[in-house]
């Protein structure tokens, strides 16, 4: 068997800090998913099919509050809507890849795979160098995510209630939220969305989250236009 080329390993090296950061994220997903009533297969299935931490955790959070299936699905898709931006931004670099590669690599287009690759693609101009670098980032991310999901499932069953591990979920979202607030419009968006979601906490079908996300985005847009 031949080892992958140097560009793959360059990507694998760059992704190491992200792998460490994803560890607790996947652990918490695995642990909370089984606590909410997902089977081990369903939990791992989520990590394989969805392969998006924030969406998976958000879905589990609304499941925990007894939301209907449609709301759970919409929640996951709204959380993942940002990937359209990555797709558009990385598409020109994928142009030289074969059709099969493009369709395959799209599956691995997570936040860190996008963020690391797009920076590197400016410097690595060869098609093969780009391809291997992308895989070097994306494949370890995938493997890491699956392993720690399973570890979370195994760990989850043994966690005592007083630990209140469910609170780790909003803390993870909090650490993801803070860097998204980069200017006035995003700040207004977050404040409005958060306020609506709190006020709407008693809404049926867990619609408070979606209402907050929709109204927050609208208010943020309006604030941008007013500025």
């Amino acid at each position: 068997m031949r080892l992958p080329p140097a560009d793959f390993w360059a990507g694998a090296r760059d992704v190491v800090p992200v792998l460490l950061g994803n560890m607790p994220f996947a652990l918490v997903f695995g642990a909370t998913a089984v606590a909410v009533g997902l089977t081990t297969a369903q939990t791992l299935g989520s990590s394989v099919f969805i392969f998006g931490g924030a969406a998976q955790l958000a879905a589990v959070q609304v499941l925990d509050r007894d939301a209907p299936a449609v709301v759970v699905l919409l929640t996951a898709l709204v959380v993942n809507a940002r990937h359209v931006m990555y797709s558009a931004s990385i598409a020109p670099y994928f142009r030289r890849f074969s059709r099969r590669q493009r369709w395959g690599y799209a599956y691995l287009l997570t936040d860190p795979a996008y963020a690391l690759s797009i920076t590197e693609f400016h410097d690595r101009t060869e098609t093969d160098a780009r391809r291997w670098y992308y895989l070097g980032v994306a494949v370890p991310l995938w493997v890491n995510w699956q392993i720690w999901t399973v570890a979370g499932v195994l760990l989850g069953a043994s966690l005592p209630a007083w630990l209140q591990v469910d609170f780790v979920v909003p803390l993870i979202f909090l650490s993801l939220l803070v860097p998204t607030i980069e200017d006035r419009a995003t700040g207004v968006t977050a404040a409005a969305a958060g306020a609506i979601a709190v006020v709407g906490v008693g809404l049926p079908y867990q619609l408070g989250l979606l209402a907050g996300a929709l109204v927050g985005t609208a208010v943020g847009l309006a604030s941008e236009e007013a500025a």
Partner: peptide
């Protein structure tokens, strides 16, 4: 719109919790 979505969704997840 897409630029604002992450801040909106994440805040809507965090604040109620």
């Amino acid at each position: 719109v897409l630029r604002l979505v992450p801040a909106a969704v994440l805040a809507a997840l965090v604040f109620p919790a």
